[in-house]
C-alpha cells in the first residue's frame, strides 16, 4: 500500500503529466510551446498550469518580448522531486503486475 501513497493526485492528468515532462528536460517553456506540444486549448492548458503553480511545482514568469506578453514556465525543486517520486511509483506499479 505504501506505493500507492506516492502516486501524486496533482499529476493525475494527461496534460499535467505532459507539462511536467516537458519542463523536466527544458530550462523553461513558454505557453505556446506547451500548447503546440500538448495539443491543448488555451483555457484547458491555463487551468492545468494554474493547478501546478498552486501546488508550487512550477514557476511562472510573465514578461514582455517587444510588445507581446510572454509567459514562461519552469519547474521548482519541489516539483522536480515530486515528479520523480510519481514516476518511480508508476514504474513500480507497472512492474508489480
Amino acid at each position: 500500500m505504501s506505493i500507492i501513497t506516492n502516486i501524486n493526485k496533482v499529476f493525475d492528468h494527461r496534460i499535467r503529466l505532459g507539462i511536467m515532462s516537458i519542463l523536466m528536460v527544458n530550462e523553461y517553456a513558454d505557453f505556446n510551446m506547451l500548447k503546440e506540444l500538448l495539443g491543448a486549448t488555451d483555457g484547458n492548458l491555463a487551468s492545468h498550469t494554474k493547478a501546478l503553480e498552486k501546488a508550487a511545482y512550477i514557476k511562472v514568469e510573465k514578461q514582455f518580448i517587444g510588445r507581446k506578453p510572454n509567459t514562461r514556465y519552469s519547474t521548482t525543486k519541489l516539483g522536480e522531486a515530486e515528479f520523480k517520486k510519481h514516476i518511480n511509483a508508476l514504474e513500480k506499479l507497472i512492474n508489480k503486475q
Binding site: R14, L17, S21, L37, I87, L90, K96
Partner: peptide
C-alpha cells in the same frame, strides 16, 4: 487495466521529453 494506463502515461512522458528537447 489500470497498469495499462500507467504504461501509456510513461511512454507518453518519454515521447514528450524527446519531442520537446530534440
Amino acid at each position: 487495466m489500470e497498469s495499462k494506463d500507467y504504461l501509456k502515461d510513461i511512454s507518453e512522458i518519454k515521447d514528450l521529453m524527446n519531442k520537446s528537447s530534440r
